[in-house]
Design a protein around this nucleic acid. Structure first.
Lengths: 123, 123
DNA sequence: TCAATGTATGACATTGGTGTGAGGGTCAAG
DNA sequence: CTTGACCCTCACACCAATGTCATACATTGA
């Protein structure tokens, strides 16, 4: 598919798709006329990238961890450096912290909204 | 306590503490000499603010939801506008999405690291 | 008293993710 | 052949969070 369709299917500005490519997060072939052409799987990848960006990971880190999140991972095992492992462990721990933070605040907001809705019903 | 101690206890640059105050996220009294003076509870608040910033919430939103996360919340109930409720619901839902995304990727990284460590032990 | 440390304000710079627009090709439908 | 929709690259602008620096006052200990 071309960039417009990818943009629609991922609800992502075309500008950003080019940017993600520039940052090495997604890949495209080129049609004879120079247009970018994407494989289907890129749709999912873009969604994943956007999710990770939303939770505060910079593209630099996303680029590093993406290959490990790709399903058929056995291929990558031989290439893993200790450095890479350290990065992954760090990010894994940071993610755990974030999950904890989000969960706590999510519950607090939910409880609050719950209380408010009771209040309204009572008045 | 003064700003230096707060900085140490929250592991936050002094610069940022002043910024958070400017954004209305924390509050300080002033000592006779003009120095900022903080209550103990501000330590926790700063940590909460940093956590929320880390997971991608902008200060504008944090400022809105913080009052609802303060424990003694009954006081705030009468002041809640429908507008505010809408904001809270939106943020609650966005948080849920983020938790899902993080959980998924956290597990993927964990699994990957697990696989790698087995590989290493086997070789 | 002097030096060191902490604090205040204000200004400017940087960074990363975005928005936006200029200027120009491609191509299919009318 | 022209129009309109889509694509290209490049450049400049923007915003929020953060870093850094300059200048100056306060406090404390040698």
């Amino acid at each position: 598919m071309r960039i417009g369709e990818l943009s629609r299917r991922t609800d992502t500005p075309v500008r950003m798709l080019r940017y993600y490519e520039e940052q090495g997060l997604i890949h495209s072939e080129r049609l004879p006329n120079g247009y970018r052409s994407y494989e289907d799987y890129v749709v999912d990848r873009v969604r994943q990238v956007r999710g990770l960006l939303e939770v505060g990971l910079p593209t630099r880190i996303i680029k590093q961890i993406l290959p490990c999140l790709d399903g058929s991972r056995a291929i990558y095992l031989p290439y893993v450096t200790p450095d890479m492992i350290a990065t992954l462990e760090r990010e894994r721990d940071r993610m755990a912290e974030k999950i904890e933070c989000l969960t706590k605040n999510h519950r607090a907001i939910s409880d609050y909204l719950e209380a408010v809705s009771h209040e309204i019903r009572a008045s």
